[in-house]
Structures are given as structure tokens and as C-alpha cells.
Design a protein around this nucleic acid. Structure first.
Lengths: 234, 234
DNA sequence: TCTCGTACATGCATGAATGTATGTTACTCG
DNA sequence: CGAGTAACATACATTCATGCATGTACGAGA
């Protein structure tokens, strides 16, 4: 009666599709193991949720749509995540980890603090080209001033970023590569705000995003712009 | 039974309070006229809704809380506004009008395009010191890519701001006060993004907000920073 | 091949928020 | 000063997303 099997075929098709290339391989098993299957759907759900959060925010996010876009139903979602909040927390961690791998690395490679901050700006601009760019800022806007666990988590990451930037600014000032000005913490706030604001405004925009974000970031730091030092486009 | 009159007294008190100074006046009537009363509550509801939208966004905005914070109930709200969407649209118009009076004026007074843009940045920073700073960006983030009427309205205002800035950038480049660079429209996006991002990050922050926002804005435009003018280049 | 645990789907109950209908008080005008 | 209407409050119906409980198919080990 209610035993329709279409959904079963669908998921079968999905996994077969993903597995067919392995048919002749030797490293991975022909049929997906349970752990693989679980990880696969978990990843799909996380990605879908990240897109949704980036577009609609937490409150407007409808879990059925998240699951559907990932190719599942809410059942799968509630099997992998405790509830909406847990899912969002997982997305937040996932996004931050991705950011750290992609942008944090760039920053760590630079020696000069000013160069590190500009690398952060450029890296963030590139990072924001994808469709999950707004996750962080959307969640922070939505939960700012609240006492929600998600808000706390996001705010924690944000504060740690601010600290990191403030530290770099202080170091840059001591090294002489960043001019004096307002308190380092206030400058760090401005720097991050400028980077985030421009990155979002320019996301998906041309190839100009990098240099423009870097320019705004440099302005917030009080650095001379590249137009002053003719021909210098790092 | 359900005829409690406490709420009636409350509203009476509220209006008497606001009217007492007029007791000896001659210009305005001693007792508030209907239109005055209506305008008063409408304004209170608008202000409350603006705060709510700025804090929680559209989706998380609870109309009962809006009404309660304004000193009324949802009944008053639904008497003055057709529905939630209508209220939000009214808030949007109200905020934009306020912005234009406060910031737009500053911009119009400046002769040089570059000076006008920097005046916009500083003016916006000051404008964002109040608690309704985030209304515009919150709504735009929440409805970006949607087909919601509120989103269209907000996006319209945003695009018109972008156009205005792009025009100023073009003029500034012809006048020589703004260096060449990426397409004017892209720079305008970066400029507005930088201004909004820094203004929000620094809202309520110290007296440094103005100069820091101006710095980021100048950076996005490719202008030399004031530290260069002071001769403090590294 | 049989059985058990896991991955997932489906159906239902709950709660919260919206919108509307109805009732009550305050102002206005004859 | 009395009728009529506007400004509100209150009570109710509807909608809808969440969370959970139940049901079914798949994978792993004996």
C-alpha cells in the first residue's frame, strides 16, 4: 500500500553513480560500506545546509528543503543530526575548518604582519566566491546579542579572528609596516568588517574582487594603497 | 469577565504624558486628535519594528514582541499595517528616508566627488551608531536572490545607491581626484560593501568609527590614505 | 542464509506565529 | 449630548515547521 520503492531506487542510483568509477579500482570497495555511505550523506546534507544557511539564514531555513536538495528526506537528516541546532553547529564548524585550511594557511605563510593581513583579505575574497560565502555573517547577524548556542559558537570564532588580526596589527606596528592609529582592537574590527563587507558585495564579481578587497583592507589598516607605490601589485 | 481596563489606562497615561507640555500651548490641541494619535502609534510601531528587524531579521521578527515593545498589542499593529510584509515595507521606506535626510544631505553638499564619497562613508558611520543600523543589510541578506516584495524594495534602494556611487566615481576619475582602476561599478560595489561592513563592525564602537570607515572606503576607492598625506609612509 | 544493527522514509503530534473576526473604548461631529 | 466611526484589545482559526515515533530496506557478520 504505502510500500513505494521509488525513493529506494533514487538513492541506489545516486550511490551507484558515485561508485561506478570504482568498478575497476582496487583501493576502495565496489559497494559502499556503511561508514562511507554515512559520510557521503552527511557531507551532502552539510553542503546543502550550508548553501541554505548562506541564502536564507537560520530562521528561514526549512529542513525539508535542505534534505530534498541533498537528495534525501528529513528522516536522513534527523538520523545524522540531533536537531536543527546541531546541524547548524556542524555546518559552522565545517565552514570554519574549511576557511582555516584555505585562508588560514595563506596567512600563516607570510612573515610580515601587514603582508599576512593582506593575504587574509585576498584569500577571503577568493574563499567567498563560492555560494557558502555568507554563512558566517548571516549567522552572526541573526544571533548577535542573543544567547543562542549557535550564536555563541559563531561569535567565538569571530572573536578569535579579531584577536588574531589585532595581534598581527600590533606586531605590524612594532615592526613599522603598519602605521599607528586607533587601538589595535578597533582597527581589527574595521579590518574584518571591511574584508567581509567587500567580499560579500563582490562575491561572484569578476576578477576584481581580490584587489578591491585588499584595497579596502589596506585602507582600514591605514596602509598606503598600491596607487601610491606605482606598479606594485603583489 | 474579560473586560479588563488596565491596558486602557496604560495608553491613556502614555498619551497624557506626551501631551502634558501642550497644556498651556495654543498651537496644538490639548487633547490629541485622531490623526495625531494614529501618527504617534504608527511611529512607535515603526521604530520598534525597525529595532526588531535590525536585531532579528524578518523571519525571526515576532509581531507580538514588536507591538509590546511599542506599548501596544498586535491589534494596533494590524489596524495600521496590512500584514507583516506591509509593516516591513514601511520600515524600509522610513529607514531609507531617514538615511537620505541625514547622510544624503551631507553627500549633496560636497563639490568634489571624492570628498562626497568620503562624506558618505563618515555620515553612514555616524548613522549606524543607532540601533537600527542593520535593518538594510539584514533585509538584503535575508531576501537576496528571492522574489519577495520586501527584497525587491530593498534591492532597489541598494542598486540606486550603487548607481549614485558609481556616478561619483566616474566623475571623480574625470576630475582626477580618484585614480583609475577596475570598472566604476565594481569599485562602487566594493565601496558600499566596505562602508557597510566597517560601519556595522564598529557600530557603537568608540569615536574611531568615522575615521576607520573613511579609511576603508578610501582604500576601496584607491585613494591615498591620510597617513600618506601626513608623510608617515613606511 | 539468517539475523541484527544501521541508514533512511513516512506519518503524526506539538507549538508557535500569523492573520482575522469580534468586542470595547475614545474621539468627532451633528 | 447622542450617534457614528476610528483606534485599539481580545479571542479564535489556520498554517507550517519542527521533532519524534514508527516502518522498511540495506549492509555486516556468523
Amino acid at each position: 500500500m504505502h510500500v513505494r520503492e521509488s525513493h529506494v531506487r533514487e538513492s541506489q542510483v545516486r550511490e551507484n553513480e558515485a561508485n561506478r568509477p570504482d568498478a575497476g579500482g582496487s583501493a576502495s570497495p565496489r559497494r559502499p560500506t556503511q561508514a562511507e555511505r554515512r559520510a557521503r550523506t552527511r557531507n551532502a546534507l552539510l553542503e546543502s545546509a550550508a548553501r541554505g544557511l548562506s541564502r536564507y539564514g537560520y530562521g528561514n531555513l526549512v529542513l525539508e528543503q535542505v534534505a530534498r536538495e541533498a537528495g534525501y528526506t528529513r528522516g536522513a537528516l534527523y538520523h545524522q543530526f540531533k536537531d536543527k541546532q546541531d546541524l547548524t553547529l556542524a555546518v559552522s564548524e565545517w565552514v570554519m575548518a574549511t576557511w582555516d585550511e584555505e585562508v588560514g594557511q595563506l596567512v600563516a605563510q607570510e612573515q610580515d604582519p601587514a603582508a599576512a593581513l593582506l593575504a587574509l583579505a585576498r584569500g577571503h575574497a577568493v574563499y567567498c566566491r563560492r555560494d557558502i560565502a555568507r554563512v558566517a555573517i548571516a549567522l552572526r547577524l541573526e544571533f548577535s546579542g542573543q544567547d543562542h548556542p549557535v550564536g555563541r559558537e559563531v561569535e567565538k570564532g569571530y572573536q578569535s579572528l579579531i584577536e588574531r588580526c589585532a595581534g598581527l596589527i600590533g606586531a605590524g606596528r612594532e615592526a613599522g609596516s603598519i602605521p599607528d592609529g586607533p587601538p589595535a582592537r578597533a582597527v581589527a574590527l574595521a579590518f574584518v568588517g571591511a574584508v567581509e563587507g567587500t567580499s560579500i558585495a563582490l562575491s561572484g564579481q569578476a576578477p576584481h574582487d581580490e584587489s578591491l578587497v585588499a584595497g579596502a583592507a589596506a585602507g582600514a589598516l591605514g596602509l598606503p594603497t598600491h596607487t601610491d607605490i606605482q606598479g606594485r601589485t603583489a
